[in-house]
């Protein structure tokens, strides 16, 4: 167990060492955040939007969505792909550790680093401009944290499964990037799915994707009440469990496929 803590801790320290670089990427993300808020302002201004969601709620939704995207950066896929391509999987295999577990610990470490050096500065800047996005209640905040973590697990597993494809296809190329956009679209990160037709919403609600972004955000801004949130959190739990199971099973198959590149 100790080793996973150690890996996590060293990742946090690493983001600290690179905090200058990290903070400069914040600027870029701030621009995207501002752009998406202005998009919604314009849409509501044109009365193009018919919704029981107020503009205020929508702004907070967008701000949070962009903030979550910062926390939801994973490196599993990239790590696996790089290790397979350079033949470094060999090095992972000869250590008595859970390989996926060590990648997870590393990404949790990065996430904590991002929380400190990207999430918080972005939260403060956007708060000063658009008004602070506060959770509706303390229980809502707690559930938001739980829900965010479950969302992260779901997303992480999807990325992990994609990464494991490297064992068959050495180069993933643009598939990985396309996948990120599809996930963000299906998860209601750009446009909440309550703007979609009823039928589609029903389907989406049972897919894992909405539970990555939309569920935690809805809890935070009070789009759903604490009591109402228990059901989607249940579905999140279900999907997190399914995804972890899929990942571990798939990992077994993939690891059997190992061919080490180079002598």
């Amino acid at each position: 167990m100790k080793v996973y803590w150690y890996i996590m801790r060293s990742r946090i320290l690493m983001t600290m060492a690179y905090r200058f670089q990290v903070i400069s990427t914040v600027l870029c993300q701030i621009v995207i955040l501002f752009a998406s808020v202005f998009f919604w302002k314009a849409a509501y201004g044109l009365e193009a939007v018919q919704s029981d969601t107020t503009l205020d709620q929508m702004i907070h939704y967008t701000v949070l969505s962009n903030l979550l995207a910062v926390l939801y950066t994973t490196f599993v896929e990239q790590n696996i792909n790089q290790n397979v391509r350079q033949g470094n999987v060999a090095v992972d295999f000869i250590k008595p550790i859970n390989i996926m577990g060590s990648y997870f610990a590393a990404d949790i470490g990065m996430m904590i680093g991002s929380l400190l050096f990207r999430f918080i500065p972005m939260y403060l800047i956007s708060g000063l401009v658009f008004g602070f996005t506060l959770p509706v209640s303390f229980p809502a905040l707690m559930l938001f944290i739980v829900s965010t973590f479950l969302g992260f697990v779901i997303l992480w597993c999807i990325c992990g499964i994609f990464g494991l494809f490297s064992f068959w296809v050495i180069q993933l190329g643009p598939i990985g990037g396309a996948k990120d956009y599809i996930i963000r679209f299906l998860s209601g990160s750009f446009v909440p799915i309550w703007f979609f037709p009823e039928g589609i919403q029903q389907v989406f609600n049972f897919l894992p994707f909405v539970h990555i972004y939309q569920t935690p955000i809805s809890i935070y801004i009070g789009k759903i009440t604490v009591l109402e949130s228990l059901f989607p959190i249940g579905i999140q739990l279900f999907w997190a469990a399914v995804m972890v199971l899929c990942l571990t099973q798939f990992q077994k198959v993939a690891f059997r496929k190992v061919v080490v590149q180079g002598g």
Partner: peptide
């Protein structure tokens, strides 16, 4: 493996050892 290192490229050698100490 003489042809490839199992040390962590970006870390100091000592840090690699520290990590190994926890792994084992």
């Amino acid at each position: 493996f003489g042809q490839r290192t199992q040390l962590y490229w970006d870390l100091r050698l000592g840090e690699s050892f520290e990590l190994l100490r926890r792994i084992y």
